[in-house]
Design a protein around this nucleic acid. Structure first.
Lengths: 209, 209, 209, 209
DNA sequence: TATGAATGAGCGTTCATTCAT
DNA sequence: GATGAATGAACGCTCATTCAT
């Protein structure tokens, strides 16, 4: 009896997972506004009504994206951000971690990009992300890695670039492209593109060819 | 007879314009998902059905955003881009022009930000914008203003930053904030934030004052 | 143009009336819980969605019962109650008026009897009716027509009897039966059924101590 | 084998009882329209599906209210009614018994008051109650306690007043109020409220014939 | 017999779209 | 051309009911 109860809970949890992944996949294919309970159900091979055995309502399913993806993702990233590394290194790590996340959960991005549906999720994610990036730029300035500037704005920029990174991935870019994107972004953040800029930092090689 | 025909065409065109502007205003107030034919009609002072005398369907109305806003906007920007200026200056001009556009057509941004509705429009705008930005970076590299790098990627980044600029405006940021954002962005593009960056090349202070 | 606008308003009003009557008839046939937008629509010969051209939502349609039936009905009855007649006569008039109303709007009663749907309506009607009946008994006591007693309770009783009157009508009772019911009710209110009633058998005080 | 069969039947019967009581309690808490199989199951500690081992469908469960509550209640009342007491006394006893019942089974009243759900139950209860009350009035008339009149109608009235009594209780009236209500009702039935108590108002005619 | 997962019909509601006038 | 009434598909959600295990 007790076993079966535990088993049930487990099965239910797995089902929630399955449904959630179905939602994710629907999200990937149809975007935030195309995320229909019906489509999700079909994707799992269920009827619409059955979903409600696992989620009280659509919102709870959506919340799931937050609980299962956003929250741990953000935490992972925030962990990265709370290391002792210098700001530029942190930035790179964060970008890579975020991108990694995006790769594994392609649907999430479309939800975050969506207009109506994931509003509550997005409302949470953006400012949190922004705060974190801002903090990193603050650190960079404080520690002398970055020139003084308004870190809230640069935080924003990186967020924008990150969004584009997701877009890149949505377009099925290769791993190499992604890698390069991150590299170039970090590089730009550090030295910009002015040719006079990195004289020393890029002693030879690329800069002149 | 021919005259009346011409007049008719003209009147129709004006009406389309009116409707389109109504849609724009609805977009501003209610966002992409709140853009219903009904609301548009009410805004113009027509009936829902009447709209279909001017636009085959909602999509065609949406297309209008492309024709009337995006297209001229892009053209303005592309003009800016086709001047003889050096790339960095172009970049700044473009950003300012784009931002100006966003200010004047707040609805457009909400459409582009929306998930489903303006998909086709967005599908057009992005690559074109991207191409242009890429070209500028190519120019900058060619002319020795920028270090060699993959310009398609930097174009993307700027596009991302631009999107954030729009977001900034959507949050009702002040003119000063916007200005600063653009300045910082240009600055970053040129020199990055590394404090060691231009050690010699930038002996004193900020690059842009 | 102006004419057509007026005409439209008129036509709309008539349609609302039609729909409302359909709702009424659905109510009669299927009871409060069977009052479906779909059924109403079918009854009118429309699609469900069309109803929403006339009523914002189901609740507004329900409100209509209050506005069109309950309110004027109660007002008519309250007018009856505010005349200069002695209480017993008022009582009779009220019962007759109420019954008249019930005859003309059979659905209303089922709504009032319903559990969920017409809750808001009923929440208004009962206390108002109760207050009125109570007032009449108060008057009757004050003017010496009725023996002193708790008029709130007798008000309740009459309300209960009235409900039964409606039930009677729901069972398709004949006019004669109804008439008799009212007569007997009035009679009972006045003299009760005790055969010894006025004899003097109750020289002092209450019958039951 | 036979024993186990009997035991089985017994266990089943007890389970039905349990479920029924759960339904009752759900009814009390959530009203007629809130009576869902799911809630009942939860209340018993079973699964929804299990209920169907004991009741073919929801209706059969509802029927149970008739068998277990209404039937014995009516029988108790009918017993009261079949005593040798004079009609007025019977009336009072019945009212008190009915009220007692209502107190003990608050759920039942909510079911009877509900619109759809308990329809079949109500369809049974009303006429039976009516018949009984009618019989009492017949007796009263026969034995000379009541003036001659149509007893079916007065039965109805008392039924209506009884319903209001239930309503009173649903509003959480105090025991005193209830008592007073019954007292006043009996009083009214006997003597009405006319202060002249019929002395002159009914000089001749009906009262004696 | 209990379970619990699944069903399917139904509800209220929205909205792009059509069409006779 | 404008109207406005009507449509129908879709959506989120509920709940009685079924059935393999």
């Amino acid at each position: 009896m007790r076993l079966s109860k535990a088993r049930k809970a487990c099965v239910t949890a797995m089902m929630k997972e399955t449904i959630f992944e179905a939602a994710n996949s629907v999200l990937e294919r149809h975007g935030a506004n195309g995320l229909t309970m019906d489509r999700v159900a079909t994707q799992v091979g269920l009827t619409t009504g059955s979903l409600y055995n696992y989620f009280r309502d659509k919102n709870e399913l959506l919340q799931c994206f937050y609980t299962r993806l956003v929250e741990p993702g953000l935490q992972a990233i925030e962990e990265t951000a709370s290391t002792e590394l210098p700001a530029p290194q942190k930035l790179e790590n964060i970008l890579r971690t975020a991108w990694q996340y995006a790769v594994e959960h392609r649907g999430l991005i479309r939800l975050l990009a969506g207009a109506n549906q994931g509003d509550e999720v997005r409302k949470e994610v953006r400012p949190r992300f922004l705060r974190m990036l801002t903090a990193i730029f603050e650190q960079g300035i404080r520690e002398g890695d970055f020139r003084p500037h308004n870190p809230a704005l640069t935080g924003r920029m990186v967020l924008g670039c990150l969004t584009e990174l997701f877009e890149l991935q949505a377009e099925d870019a290769s791993q190499e492209e992604i890698d390069e994107y991150v590299r170039v972004l970090i590089d730009a953040a550090l030295h910009g593109f002015s040719i006079h800029a990195g004289k020393a930092s890029k002693p030879a090689g690329r800069s002149r060819s």
